[in-house]
Amino acid sequence: MKNNIAVQIDDLTVAYNYKPVLWDIDLEIPEGVLMAIVGPNGAGKSTLIKSILGILKPIAGSVTIYGKSYKEQRSLVAYVPQKGSVDWDFPTTALDVVMMGTYGSLGWIKRPRQKEKKAALEALEKVGMLPFKNRQISQLSGGQQQRIFLARALVQDASIYFMDEPFQGVDATTEIAIINILKELRKAGKTVIVVHHDLQTVPEYFDWVTFLNVKKIATGPVKDIFNDDNLTKTYGINYKVSIQE
């Protein structure tokens, strides 16, 4: 059933100052999965996403999105960076941040108009943030800021979504709201790839998982490969989780 490969990574090696952060990664991400990338701190999870999106230059290897380079397929991809990667004191409103999601389809110089604004308002509605559209972004709670970031990705109306720790520092309500939206995206046939930290929730939230620690440890359906063996290999300590079915 999952025949199409959404993202194909071959022999990817990325280094900071000649020290490899990712080493010879081969990875196929099938279309329509909701996939978690798990691994310890410094395992290269964010680096993997940034390399796929062309933000970092790999020293070797290739990445293709539906068989073509990222540059050609940019419009198919949406990205949610880590919440901490931006300055939330920036003078702008929630609506304006969501509008930024439309900039990619606009291209250089062209300004967003009514059509883009309408799309942004719809995305805000989907994440339950419409009442906050005119609020300055520093006046939002951590969970609300994360929802704004999610809305900004939704407005791109992409086929593949990359999210870097969307559950970091959010309250329980927001976490449930976010995972429901991610599950809806999967239902609509989208591919969703999430850097995730909370191992306990992997079986509940995701259907696909990739274990990463500089090298790829394992990738596949959660029910087949999310086990103590792979966790131990990834985290280097004897790991025991009880998987609830």
């Binding site: 933000i55 940019r74 960076p81 990667s85 941040v97 291209g107 110089i109």
Partner: peptide, 17 residues
Amino acid sequence: KELKLSTFDKGLAASLG
């Protein structure tokens, strides 16, 4: 638009081209 985006969120600016 480009100045605002890249000042606020360099990562998104890069991924959008």
